[in-house]
Every structure is written in structure tokens, then in C-alpha cells.
């Protein structure tokens, strides 16, 4: 807000534009440098070495596209991409829908809200390794959910996704959504609390139903909150690794492999650095393809509007 009030000032004092708010600029310098050196610098370094034949150690003596050609012939990589697509799409939808639904329920001024909020958020306090192990046991047919429900008398009940190559990614999805939804719910709840009470009153006076108020008024108002949630969920999807390692270690066979596992195994287990770099560059490119058009619309568009 204060920014837009001070906007006209640079017109009269044009030369001092760079010095304007100097202390703030100085204070942000370390972070700017970190971002440039660590994020951009390391990214450029990685992309550069993905064109070499580096094994365990970086070696820039030869350059070729060999690593990329090889990458796209690897069955394991193709399976990983497919798994990430399925996991990503479904976990995005489920986290947002369930997270918003839970937040909306809590926002209805129910009794014991704090208790429910804690219960829903608790899974997020667990690391992915613990989550993965816990769900590995829960989904184990011999002593998990299946065994317990069968013991209650439903003999034909079957829940054994982790040993079925066609279903294993959904078993991982369950654990991922269970772990991550609580945080999304909290962010949504915070957003809902920021909605002015008068809007609800106005909607009620106009006789709009509760569901319709949510869909037509509240959700559009929560747009920034949704975007925050979206960014958090997407980052979690791209880097999913430890959950899979703990739950299935990529199996059965190669059926629950994900790109991050391919990158890590190639770099350190198989001692093929360049191949790992090529794979991580492809991961970066796929993020860019989604991110750049979105950023253009989000930020580029606004400037014109102002």
C-alpha cells in the first residue's frame, strides 16, 4: 500500500531512484547474492555438465548430447515420468479439494475446532520417511489394514496396492495426500478467516445458499491463497523422493520409480554424474514449461492493468 503512495516521488527526483530505500536494498543484497550464486549459478553449472561424459567426478573434456539421447531410451526414466504425472495431477486435485473442504468445515464455527485442527495438521509434523514407513505397514496385506478388516469377518476384503505394479503409485498417493493435506487446510483456513464477516451477512441477506456463496464468492476471493497452496504442493510433487524410498524403494520392479530417484541413483549409486545432471535438467525444463507462462500471465498481465 505504502508503495503506491510513494510512487510519484521518483518523477521529481529521478537521479536518486537507485538510492531510493537504500537500507532495504542493502539488507536484501545477501539474499540476492545467495539466489544468484546458489540457485542460478549451480543450475547453470549442472546444465553445463549435463553435456559432458562425467562419471563420478565432473569432467569437461568432451561435449555431446549423448546423455539426453540415452536418457530418453531408458525404460526406468519413462516409467518415472509417467508416475510423476499421475502422482502430481492426483495429489494436486486431492490436496486442494480435501484441504479446502476440511477448512470450510472447520470455519463453520464448530465445537472443538482446535482439536480437529491439530489432528489434521499432525501428519505434517512427520517426515516423509516416517510417513512412508507407517503407510508401508498400514498397507501391508499381512498385518495392516487388510489383515485387520479380514479379522473382523470381511474375508474377501483386499487392500494391497504396494505389491501390485498397476496400483502402487496410488498407494504412495494415499500417504502423500495424508501427509500434506493438513498444511493446505491450515493455509485455506487462514484465508477463510481473512474474509470479512460482512460478506457473509450480505450473502445471507441476498438469500444466497452457503454452497453457492463458497463457490461463487469466497473461492474467487481466496485466489492468492490458492496460488500459495498450489506452489507448495507443486514443489512437493517435483521433489517427491523420500516417501517412495521409504514406502517401496521404487518397486515392485520399477513400477513406483520417480525422477528424483533416477537422478540420485545415477549420480551417486551408478556413478554417472552427467546422466543424473541430464535427468535433473529435464526436470527443470518441465517446471519451466509450466512456470513461465503462468508467471507471464500473473505478473506481466498486472503491470498492464495498472
Amino acid at each position: 500500500m505504502s508503495d503506491s503512495l510513494q510512487q510519484p516521488a521518483p518523477l521529481t527526483q529521478r537521479p536518486s531512484r537507485w538510492l531510493h530505500n537504500l537500507s532495504a536494498k542493502l539488507a536484501s543484497l545477501p539474499m540476492v547474492l545467495t539466489a544468484l550464486v546458489v540457485f542460478v549459478g549451480c543450475t547453470v553449472w549442472t546444465v553445463f555438465y549435463s553435456f559432458t561424459n562425467s562419471r563420478l567426478l565432473p569432467d569437461a573434456s568432451k561435449f555431446s548430447l549423448k546423455q539426453y539421447e540415452y536418457l530418453w531410451t531408458q525404460r526406468r526414466w519413462l516409467i518415472s515420468i509417467e508416475n510423476l504425472a499421475v502422482y502430481g495431477a492426483l495429489s494436486l486435485i486431492f490436496s486442494l479439494v480435501i484441504g479446502f473442504f476440511l477448512a470450510a468445515l472447520l470455519d463453520r464455527k464448530i465445537r472443538g475446532e482446535a482439536i480437529f485442527r491439530t489432528i489434521f495438521l499432525y501428519p505434517f509434523a512427520l517426515s516423509f520417511i516416517i510417513t512412508g514407513l507407517a503407510w508401508q505397514w498400514l498397507l501391508n496385506p499381512d498385518f495392516g489394514i487388510q489383515a485387520n478388516i479380514r479379522a473382523l469377518g470381511w474375508e474377501s476384503f483386499s487392500l494391497d496396492p504396494l505389491n501390485n505394479p498397476d496400483l502402487v503409485i496410488y498407494g504412495i498417493l494415499i500417504a502423500g495426500v495424508w501427509q500434506g493435506t493438513g498444511l493446505i487446510m491450515c493455509i485455506m483456513l487462514a484465508g477463510l478467516r481473512g474474509i470479512d464477516e460482512d460478506i457473509w451477512k450480505a450473502a445471507r441477506v441476498d438469500g444466497i445458499s452457503t454452497v453457492k456463496t463458497y463457490l461463487k464468492i469466497i473461492i474467487p476471493m481466496l485466489r492468492p491463497v490458492f496460488i500459495t497452496a498450489l506452489v507448495l504442493i507443486s514443489a512437493g510433487i517435483i521433489k517427491v523422493y523420500d516417501l517412495v524410498v521409504a514406502q517401496t524403494s521404487g518397486g515392485p520392479g520399477l513400477s513406483s520409480q520417480v525422477p528424483a530417484m533416477y537422478v540420485f541413483d545415477k549420480m551417486f549409486k551408478d556413478q554417472n554424474l552427467a546422466q543424473g545432471f541430464a535427468a535433473s535438467t529435464m526436470m527443470l525444463v518441465s517446471v519451466m514449461i509450466v512456470l513461465i507462462p503462468w508467471a507471464y500471465l500473473e505478473f506481466g498481465g498486472k503491470k498492464h492493468a495498472r
Partner: peptide, 19 residues
């Protein structure tokens, strides 16, 4: 074999065994 070759063989055999 280099670790890379061993890794490729492992990827192949484990998929073969599971499918």
C-alpha cells in the same frame, strides 16, 4: 562392470522379475 552398467542390469532384472 562399472557401477553404471551394474545399475542398468539391476534395473532390467528387477523389472523382469516383478512383471
Amino acid at each position: 562392470f562399472t557401477p553404471d552398467t551394474i545399475g542398468q542390469i539391476e534395473d532390467l532384472i528387477v523389472e523382469f522379475w516383478a512383471d
